Amino acid sequence: MPQTFNTPADYVDAAREMADAGRPVLARLLAEEAADRTPAPDAAARILAEFPGRSLRQEG
């Protein structure tokens, strides 16, 4: 069954799956997306703290 991404929790769940699968970069990117979609700054900070690392996003 395909994964759907409708809420920040969906992104966090996918990030945890990627971390468990040994894909920390993808996990961090998914966590950053979850944090961006989370309205509460303290909750967003907790999400990012669970998946440490620097951002690899290419904004431009």
Score class of each variant (00 low, 15 high):
residue 1 M to I: 03
residue 1 M to N: 04
residue 1 M to A: 11
residue 1 M to P: 08
residue 2 P to F: 05
residue 2 P to R: 03
residue 2 P to Y: 04
residue 2 P to A: 11
residue 2 P to E: 03
residue 2 P to G: 04
residue 2 P to W: 02
residue 3 Q to T: 10
residue 3 Q to F: 06
residue 3 Q to I: 08
residue 3 Q to E: 09
residue 3 Q to H: 09
residue 4 T to R: 13
residue 4 T to V: 11
residue 4 T to C: 02
residue 5 F to W: 05
residue 5 F to H: 05
residue 5 F to S: 01
residue 5 F to M: 13
residue 6 N to I: 03
residue 6 N to C: 05
residue 7 T to F: 10
residue 7 T to M: 09
residue 7 T to P: 10
residue 8 P to R: 12
residue 8 P to L: 13
residue 8 P to M: 11
residue 9 A to Y: 02
residue 9 A to S: 13
residue 9 A to Q: 15
residue 9 A to P: 01
residue 9 A to F: 07
residue 9 A to L: 12
residue 10 D to E: 07
residue 10 D to H: 12
residue 11 Y to N: 11
residue 11 Y to S: 06
residue 11 Y to C: 04
residue 11 Y to M: 08
residue 12 V to M: 07
residue 12 V to A: 05
residue 12 V to K: 09
residue 12 V to D: 01
residue 12 V to R: 10
residue 13 D to V: 02
residue 13 D to M: 04
residue 13 D to F: 06
residue 14 A to Y: 14
residue 14 A to I: 06
residue 14 A to E: 10
residue 16 R to Y: 00
residue 16 R to C: 00
residue 17 E to P: 01
residue 17 E to L: 11
residue 17 E to R: 14
residue 18 M to P: 02
residue 18 M to E: 15
residue 19 A to S: 09
residue 19 A to L: 12
residue 19 A to H: 05
residue 19 A to F: 04
residue 19 A to P: 01
residue 20 D to E: 14
residue 20 D to P: 00
residue 21 A to F: 04
residue 21 A to Y: 00
residue 21 A to G: 03
residue 21 A to L: 12
residue 21 A to H: 00
residue 23 R to Q: 13
residue 23 R to W: 02
residue 23 R to M: 12
residue 24 P to I: 03
residue 24 P to K: 06
residue 24 P to Q: 06
residue 24 P to E: 01
residue 25 V to Q: 12
residue 25 V to P: 01
residue 26 L to A: 14
residue 26 L to R: 12
residue 26 L to T: 13
residue 26 L to S: 12
residue 26 L to W: 07
residue 27 A to E: 04
residue 27 A to M: 10
residue 27 A to F: 13
residue 28 R to C: 13
residue 28 R to E: 12
residue 28 R to W: 12
residue 28 R to G: 14
residue 31 A to L: 08
residue 31 A to K: 08
residue 31 A to C: 08
residue 31 A to V: 07
residue 32 E to F: 10
residue 32 E to Y: 09
residue 32 E to D: 15
residue 33 E to G: 06
residue 34 A to Y: 05
residue 34 A to G: 07
residue 38 T to L: 01
residue 38 T to F: 03
residue 38 T to N: 02
residue 39 P to G: 03
residue 39 P to L: 07
residue 39 P to T: 08
residue 40 A to E: 13
residue 40 A to M: 06
residue 40 A to S: 08
residue 42 D to K: 05
residue 42 D to C: 00
residue 42 D to M: 09
residue 42 D to P: 00
residue 43 A to G: 00
residue 43 A to E: 15
residue 43 A to Y: 01
residue 43 A to L: 11
residue 44 A to E: 04
residue 45 A to L: 06
residue 45 A to C: 03
residue 45 A to E: 10
residue 46 R to Q: 15
residue 46 R to Y: 03
residue 46 R to L: 12
residue 46 R to W: 03
residue 47 I to F: 03
residue 48 L to V: 07
residue 48 L to A: 03
residue 48 L to M: 10
residue 49 A to M: 08
residue 49 A to W: 06
residue 50 E to A: 15
residue 50 E to S: 15
residue 50 E to Q: 15
residue 50 E to V: 05
residue 52 P to M: 10
residue 52 P to V: 09
residue 52 P to W: 09
residue 52 P to E: 08
residue 53 G to C: 02
residue 54 R to F: 00
residue 55 S to R: 04
residue 56 L to H: 11
residue 56 L to P: 00
residue 56 L to K: 01
residue 57 R to A: 10
residue 57 R to T: 01
residue 57 R to E: 11
residue 57 R to F: 00
residue 57 R to H: 04
residue 58 Q to Y: 01
residue 59 E to A: 07
residue 59 E to C: 02
residue 60 G to Q: 12
residue 60 G to D: 11
residue 60 G to E: 13
